[in-house]
Amino acid sequence: MIRVQELTKSYGAHAVLRGVTLEVARGELAVVIGASGSGKSTFLRCLNGLERLDGGAIEIAGTTLVPGLAPEEEERRANALRQEVGMVFQQFHLFPHMSALANIVEAPVHVAGVSPAEARERALHLLERFGLAAKARSRPDQLSGGEQQRVAIARALAMQPTVMLFDEPTSALDPRRAGEILRILDALADDGLTMVVVTHSMGFARKAADRVHVFHEGRVIESGPPEEVLVNPREAATRELLELG
């Protein structure tokens, strides 16, 4: 579903990604861990075309991204892949001028062309599933962090993506709320969604991940099932990360 080869990305002279190679199979839940500044967020942003790549290639949900495309072609491909790939930002970025319900209905109606009535039906269903039925009419600034996070997930899911990218879905939440989010991700995994989750939560990685990828200074230094990588790490950097976490 996702194949990344020798991906490089720099901001000016600062090389953030220095040759990332990894694969995620259909229906797999991949967890990315790594020290702060190791390039995890940048990697996710590259996956859905928010950042332009400097080198290497990304194949995701049937679309290929390579460096040096003409701007219109790059825009076209990014837009095509985003129809299949949803993303939830660390800071959620809900639309503050719309209610929770309107946030969720927005893209299905205006991008996918779903009828407003049907989009509403689906949105209410998602809110119900996430325990937010009472909050449909609330504005984002009237919601708690955990509620905002769930609305953001519902907003992405409403487009019925085949791949979901999550950037630290629990970092802004207290442990109890974090637990709720992790249960939601678990359930999505059971539905067969392909997911890439950046997290600092080793507990989640251990329980939910099919594969764990360890980022270190812009490279994947270790990949494997959690019971290998998290129990018997090969790399010193991984061991260090686990001891700190």
């Binding site: 930002f89 639309f95 996918a112």
Partner: peptide, 24 residues
């Protein structure tokens, strides 16, 4: 982040401006 969130939902730049950025 508002523009990016709109793009990520599959909106074109133009639609993102009209529906998300300009109203704010």
């Amino acid at each position: 982040g508002q523009m990016e969130a709109a793009l990520v939902l599959g909106m074109s730049r133009r639609l993102a401006l009209r529906r998300v950025v300009v109203p704010q």
